[in-house]
Structures are given as C-alpha cells and as structure tokens.
Simulated assay, not measured.
Amino acid sequence: MKRQRRSFSPEFKHDSASLVVDQGYSMTEASRAVDVHENTLRKWVRQLEAERGGSTPKSKALTPEQQRIQELEARVNRLEREKTILKKATALLMSDDLKSTR
C-alpha cells in the first residue's frame, strides 16, 4: 500500500531544521525525532541555511524575514501588473478622446 503524501507547515520545517542547525542534533537523530525522511530534513536544513545567508527561496520560506520578503515581492509584482494595465487603459482612453474631438 502506498503511503499518503504529508504536508508540513513552514513553522514545522523551520523548527525541524533548527534542531540540526542550532541545537546540534545529527541529521539521523533529528529526522527520527520529527518522523520525516532524512533527505527531506536535509533539504529543509539547506533551505534554512540559505535563507539565513540572505537568499530568498523559490519555494515557501521558512524564516519570518524571508516570508515577509516573499509577501512584499508578490505585492510589488501585483502592483506592477496593475500599473501596466492602467497605462494601457489611459493610452486607450486618450486615443479615443483624440478621435472624438476631431
């Protein structure tokens, strides 16, 4: 029988990776303690170390600072798209206005 795929919150991933990074647990000990595969925990540890090094991950961030950065980047992207739409709408309205005044 196939094991059902589990999902973990960013807080759980952060706490699990902190066991290795901050508290000195071995990868094997920590993976047994939190009941995840060692390779999964290794990936979380690499991501946590990268985030603490200042890089923003492509996946869901583990640290609160990186989560905030991702939220702000998403907001900037949305605002840029809205600005582009408004520019196009303004240009369209201006061209219609010029046609009607002639």
Score class of each variant (00 low, 15 high):
K58E: 12
S9Q: 14
M94L: 12
E29K: 01
R5Y: 12
F12I: 06
L72V: 14
E11P: 03
A74N: 06
K13Q: 14
L19H: 02
R78W: 12
Q67R: 13
A50W: 01
A50T: 06
L72C: 09
N39K: 11
R75S: 07
M27E: 02
T28K: 04
E38A: 08
R46Y: 10
I85H: 12
R42C: 09
E29F: 06
E29C: 05
T90K: 12
A30Q: 04
T90V: 15
L62D: 02
L72A: 11
R42I: 05
E38R: 05
Q4R: 12
R6I: 12
N77T: 14
R3N: 07
L98A: 06
S31I: 03
L41I: 07
L93P: 04
L72S: 05
Q4G: 13
A50D: 06
P64V: 09
E51Q: 03
V36S: 00
L19I: 02
I85Y: 13
P10A: 15
S31F: 02
S95M: 15
A30D: 02
K13H: 05
I85M: 15
L19E: 00
E73M: 04
Q70M: 08
D15H: 11
R5I: 14
R78G: 10
S100R: 11
R32Y: 07
M94G: 09
S26T: 15
R52Y: 09
K60I: 08
R6W: 11
L98M: 07
S31N: 00
G24Q: 05
R75C: 13
G53V: 03
M27W: 00
Q47E: 09
G54Y: 06
I85P: 04
L19W: 04
S59Q: 07
W44A: 02
S7Y: 14
T101V: 13
A33C: 07
E51N: 02
D97C: 12
E80H: 11
H37T: 07
R75T: 11
R75P: 04
D35R: 08
T90L: 14
D22G: 03
F12L: 10
H37W: 07
L62E: 05
V20W: 00
V36K: 01
F8P: 02
T63V: 09
L48N: 00
H14P: 03
T40H: 00
T40N: 02
P64R: 03
R68E: 13
K87L: 13
S7K: 13
D97A: 14
A91D: 10
T63F: 03
R32H: 10
D15P: 01
F12N: 04
L48P: 02
E73V: 04
S26P: 00
Q23D: 08
V20P: 00
K87T: 08
K87N: 13
Y25W: 10
M27P: 01
S26W: 00
E38K: 06
K99E: 14
P10C: 06
V36R: 00
E71F: 10
K87M: 11
F8S: 07
V34N: 01
P64D: 13
P57Q: 07
W44K: 03
P64S: 05
L19A: 06
A50H: 09
L41H: 00
